[in-house]
């Protein structure tokens, strides 16, 4: 695989002296979906803006398909589609004119067929003659995506594509993204919805206070940091966890009817077999058991709080 986007030691200090990016280095492979995950103010939007030419970096570099985003900005930007976090659209403009404008800005000739294809892809065809202010919030966001796609970019930045979008539409959005990936578009998206990163991304980059904390394949991250919980429902309530089971650090539910055991999926021995034996040795009768994998959200919260403790 080859990196289509190479970010090297990218720094951004805003005019007020605030350093929003502290030397970000990141490679994005052609055709992958990378999720940028981070709390408010982590620097996600700044990172995207700096690559796209909206803000000027104060250090480091970035290249798209080998073109430096500053020196060779024409070639670099021609490859990029950007869907901003804010809904920035002219309220009185007509939907399809918006798409013609975007194509023109990127130096492409007027092409009603492409505009039609993109509008249909984003279920906006019926609204093509409407003015932007007549659309719902979710539709406006799709107009932004359509504008970013209509000049046929190879790299697409989606800055919180599903903020303020309802559950059904969010699923639609995921499908759209999956389809774009199938078309060969490289996608970098930011999100606060961890399930979104989990559902869509091939890799996840965690960013906080202008620094990348880690970049991992989504599955790897889940495996490496993922702990599983085993929940054991009991037939008879317990008033306390028997002394003999103390080595398993079980948690007893308030009603005494369930025990929770956490274990590391990566460990050589999970300890489950031993626990089962110990339970029956102690005369505890099981009613049901279930396991639960911790979500990226849990992982993320862990990661950030660990950082905070060590800081």
């Amino acid at each position: 695989m080859t990196a289509i986007l190479k970010i090297r030691d990218l720094e951004k200090t805003y005019d007020g002296g605030f350093q929003a990016l502290k030397g970000v280095t990141l490679d994005i492979e052609e055709g992958e979906i990378l999720a940028l995950l981070g709390p408010n103010g982590a620097g996600k939007t700044t990172l995207i803006s700096t690559v796209c030419g909206i803000t000027v970096p104060t250090g480091g570099s970035a290249t798209v398909s080998g073109h430096d985003v500053q020196r060779d900005y024409r070639k670099a930007r021609a490859e990029i589609g950007l869907v901003p976090q804010e809904i920035n659209l002219e309220p009185f403009s007509i939907v399809e004119n918006n798409l013609h404008l975007s194509r023109g800005l990127f130096g492409k000739r007027r092409d009603p067929a492409t505009v039609e294809r993109v509008l249909k892809q984003l279920s906006l065809w019926d609204k093509r003659k409407n003015r932007v202010h007549e659309l719902s919030g979710g539709m406006k966001r799709r107009v932004l995506i359509a504008k970013a796609l209509v000049h046929e970019p190879r790299v697409l930045f989606l800055d919180e594509p599903t903020a303020g979008v309802d559950v059904a539409l969010r699923k639609d959005m995921w499908e759209t993204v999956a389809q774009l990936k199938a078309d060969g578009v490289t996608i970098i998206l930011t999100t606060h919805y961890i399930e979104e990163a989990e559902a869509m991304a091939d890799r996840v980059a965690v960013i906080r206070k202008g620094e990348i904390l880690m970049v991992e394949p989504t599955s790897e991250l889940m495996r490496r940091l993922g702990r599983k919980e085993l929940r054991i429902d009991l037939r008879e309530p317990l008033s306390e966890v028997p002394q003999a089971l103390s080595e398993y650090e079980l948690e007893l539910a308030e009603d005494g009817l369930a025990l929770t055991y956490s274990y590391d999926t990566q460990a050589d021995r999970t300890g489950i077999a031993g626990l089962m034996r110990a339970l029956s040795d102690n005369g505890i009768i099981l009613k049901d058991i279930q396991t639960r994998q911790s979500s990226l959200e849990d992982i993320f919260v862990d990661l950030v709080s660990e950082e905070e403790e060590s800081a």
């Binding site: 796209c52 030419g53 990029i80 901003p84 800005l105 990127f106």
Partner: peptide, 17 residues
């Protein structure tokens, strides 16, 4: 106007001088 409503982002991120 585009600066005020934010649509200027598109011009700034387009391959134009």
């Amino acid at each position: 106007f585009p600066k005020f409503i934010g649509t200027v982002f598109e011009v700034l991120s387009a391959p134009v001088n």
